[in-house]
Design a protein around this nucleic acid. Structure first.
Length: 460
DNA sequence: TGAAATGTTGGGGCG
DNA sequence: ACGCCCCAACATTTC
């Protein structure tokens, strides 16, 4: 029997052993597997991961290395440009093939192209697999053969797609290398600096992801449709960072939940994720540019003072401030509240949506280019299938509707303690005003009218 | 995956 | 008893 040359498995945001097509293919080849992750400090990429995402990634890689270790493999960490590192690694190990799962963010696609070209030059083959999406971008088009720009038709077309192939199980045995190539440590790759520790209710890594998914299925899926809008209730899945880093695949979730009655509302959210990826695939410029051209002329009023009041949770609107403080303190924000704070920044404060995109990108564990971009464009009214610009959330009403007891705002804005529930969402009307809590930085009705006037200037 | 303004209706108080 | 008015409550339109 001829000795097989090793294959390199290039891990990216697919940090799992289950349902990992590239890994499965590598193992199936029977060749020794070199699992690699490349940390690339790309100064020229405006969307390189933020601090929160980095700290998540670091822990997740630690777990991945451990579970590879249990199966006799090492995770080789290298620092540098992927095309150079992988070519180098191939030369060191004699690998003839590099496998990976495709990712569709603009910079990831460019990176994959560079890698494939660099490998081809040195006679190393590239093999790509699908796992970041349920259906490949470009595979779902309108009757006219164009990308969908409205969610509902996309959703219908999505449901008509051929059934998914079954999820892959984690490989039991893998062929190790006789001698492992060198690897840098996580400390070297990410710096020894103490990063903000991950809060104890998050568990980066595949095991944490699977546990979270199981817990959600057992305890929250039933009531998801109604409870997902209540930030004081644990009614959401909290799977977004796990999905972002590929610690669980969308296919695993889809197949585990699709047979459960009442799972439709959650699965629909997974399709929103697909929708965002498909749109960004077709229009990569949307990370910076509004999808609707008219918005290029929108009279934003950039103002660092207003922006930092928003960032720091000092707007005087309890629901907005609670959300922004939750974000800063935990790296996460409940989605209902994300919509409210985003609407507030863009409409009440007239700050460009890109300001919000950037802040979320830097603060969120689950910061995901497609979801973040499309979410903000949606709120701002300039995106695909966007909320009309005149749909302006009233932060008081949203608070009264979705946090009626005020448990959520009290948790994150302790200055409100003592304010009667009746006035929790508009404490400036309480007979005894909370001390140390700011007055609203804008008055709702006036801000609303100002936003409508600004919108009127770009309407045709 | 709004909210506010405006319109309509119907019950009840009251002269 | 009747018409008038007020105003919830709900529906529709507008932003």
């Amino acid at each position: 029997m001829t000795k097989l040359s090793p294959v390199i498995l290039w891990f990216r945001r697919d940090l799992r052993l289950h349902d990992n097509p590239a890994l499965a293919a590598a193992v199936r080849s029977g060749a020794p597997v070199v699992a690699a992750f490349i940390v690339s400090p790309e100064a020229d990429d405006p969307w390189s991961p933020g601090e929160r995402a980095q700290s998540w990634l670091r822990v997740s890689l630690d777990h991945l290395a451990a579970s590879l270790g249990e199966r006799g493999l090492r995770l080789i960490l290298r620092i540098g440009r992927p095309e150079l590192c992988l070519a180098q690694l191939a030369a060191e190990t004699g690998a003839a093939t590099v496998l990976w799962n495709t990712q569709y963010d603009p910079t990831d696609r460019a990176e994959e192209t560079r890698v494939a070209e660099a490998l081809a030059k040195v006679g190393v083959a590239s093999r790509t697999h699908e796992s970041d999406v349920l259906h490949r971008p470009g595979s779902i088009l309108t009757g006219a053969g164009r990308p969908h720009s409205v969610f509902t038709p996309f959703y219908r077309a999505f449901l008509r797609m051929p059934p998914l192939a079954p999820s892959l199980s984690a490989p039991r045995t893998m062929t190790p290398m006789r001698r492992w190539p060198a690897s840098v440590s996580l400390n070297t790759a990410f710096g020894k600096q103490a990063q903000r520790p991950i809060l104890s209710d998050w568990h980066p890594g595949e095991e944490g992801a699977i546990k979270r998914a199981k817990r959600f299925k057992a305890h929250a899926l039933d009531s998801y449709e109604s409870a997902r809008d209540l930030p004081a209730v644990e009614g959401i899945s909290r799977l977004s960072p796990h999905l972002h880093f590929g610690e669980v695949s969308p296919r695993q979730l889809w197949q585990s939940l699709t047979t459960v009655p009442g799972s439709g509302a959650f699965l629909r959210q997974l399709v929103w994720r697909e929708f965002a990826r498909h749109i960004l695939f077709h229009k990569p410029e949307l990370t910076e540019q509004p999808m609707r051209g008219a918005f290029a002329k929108f009279p934003w009023q950039p103002d660092p003072v207003q922006t930092s009041a928003w960032q720091e949770g000092r707007t005087g609107y309890p629901l907005v401030d609670a959300g922004m403080r939750e974000l800063r303190e935990t790296g996460f924000m409940h989605n209902r509240v994300r919509m409210v704070v985003a609407s507030f920044l863009v409409k009440h404060l007239l700050q460009p949506w890109q300001t919000g995109t950037r802040w979320f990108w830097d603060q969120l564990y689950d910061a995901d280019l497609a979801n973040n971009t499309l979410g903000w464009q949606w709120v701002a009214g300039c995106g695909p299938d966007a909320a009309p610009y005149f749909r302006i959330f009233n932060p008081v009403l949203q608070g009264e509707k979705f946090d009626p007891e005020g448990a959520y705002v009290l948790r994150w804005v302790p200055e409100l303690k003592g304010v009667p529930v009746r006035w929790l969402h508009q404490p400036w009307l309480a007979s005894v005003k909370p001390r140390r809590y700011p007055k609203p930085i804008v008055e709702h009705t006036a801000a609303r009218e100002r936003a409508l006037a600004a919108y009127a200037t770009i309407r045709d």
